[in-house]
């Protein structure tokens, strides 16, 4: 294939280093500044490398996020993506993975589709791990999830797909949806030039309604959070500083359990 267009799904999430909290409506509090989910930085990098190897084409991004948030998208644009579609709509609060997939599918179509759609295996804050495969079904495309290596040969993808016991080699015709694992490639750091250029790259902001997706949010979810409780805490045990002999404590501990 001469040129290759890739669309990457990028989720924008609260900083994972900050402790998570649930709001009064039991959804994750997302009102602070959002960042590009690290899980998706691998997809962006993979897309840039594939387009580079194809010798032409471009990388675009789609995201669904509250409050018109674009800072995570700007990071992806600074890495080298050229444009994006953001779906932001108060009606989307409380959306489940299925609605997310429908919204992202419509955003992909808004961009005119692509040869390949990439996503992360699971998001850092939601980790349902179902959005990519749902998106593939929404778009009527084949899919390969959990890819740890992706190459394109003519119109065919060759993927190494992680399994419980090792990996499978999978081939798949394009267009397709692929979800990539962390570690599939080493994401680049945006250069200063990239960061400056990203500021003027186009992001089209639309609502779910503009894309013709209804119902969304709580109304469309098919599920309701009915209780939130603290789990029983595990009690911490004995903690000792190693004085060179602490290994003996471990031997004693194992001995008491009769496992040695």
């Amino acid at each position: 294939m001469a040129a290759m267009n890739v669309i990457v799904c990028v989720k924008q999430i609260p900083d994972p280093a900050a402790p998570g909290a649930l709001g009064a409506d039991h959804t994750l509090v997302r009102d602070g500044k959002l960042i590009l989910d690290e899980s998706d930085s691998y997809g962006v990098e993979m897309a840039l490398q594939l387009v580079d190897k194809a010798g032409g084409g471009e990388v675009s991004i789609v995201s669904m996020a509250p409050n018109g948030e674009v800072s995570g998208m700007r990071t992806a644009l600074a890495m080298g993506a050229v444009k994006g579609v953001l779906v932001s709509d108060p009606a989307l609060a409380g959306s489940d993975a299925l609605t997310t997939a429908k919204v992202l599918g419509a955003a992909v179509q808004r961009l005119g589709g692509a040869d390949l759609v990439l996503a992360g295996t699971e998001s850092s804050d939601g980790y349902t791990g179902t959005v990519p495969e749902q998106l593939a079904e929404v778009l009527g495309l084949p899919s390969v999830t959990f890819a740890k290596s992706v190459t394109v040969d003519g119109g065919t993808l060759k993927v190494e797909r992680q399994t419980e016991a090792g990996y499978d080699e999978v081939t798949c015709p394009l267009p397709a949806v692929v979800s990539v694992t962390a570690g599939v490639v080493e994401p680049r750091y945006p250069s200063f030039k990239g960061i400056m250029a990203a500021k003027s790259k186009p992001i089209e902001e639309v609502t779910a309604g503009d894309l013709g997706v209804t119902p969304v949010g709580w109304a469309g979810a098919g599920q309701q959070i009915t209780e939130v409780a603290q789990a029983a805490e595990r009690q911490a045990g004995e903690i000792i500083e190693d004085d060179g002999e602490a290994f003996g404590k471990i031997v004693e501990f194992l001995d008491n359990l009769k496992v040695i």
Binding site: P142, S143, D168, T171, P173
Partner: peptide, 11 residues
């Protein structure tokens, strides 16, 4: 089209 992905080798 959705059935396009096929396993060719298992490791």
């Amino acid at each position: 089209a959705t059935g396009g992905a096929v396993v060719t080798a298992v490791h």
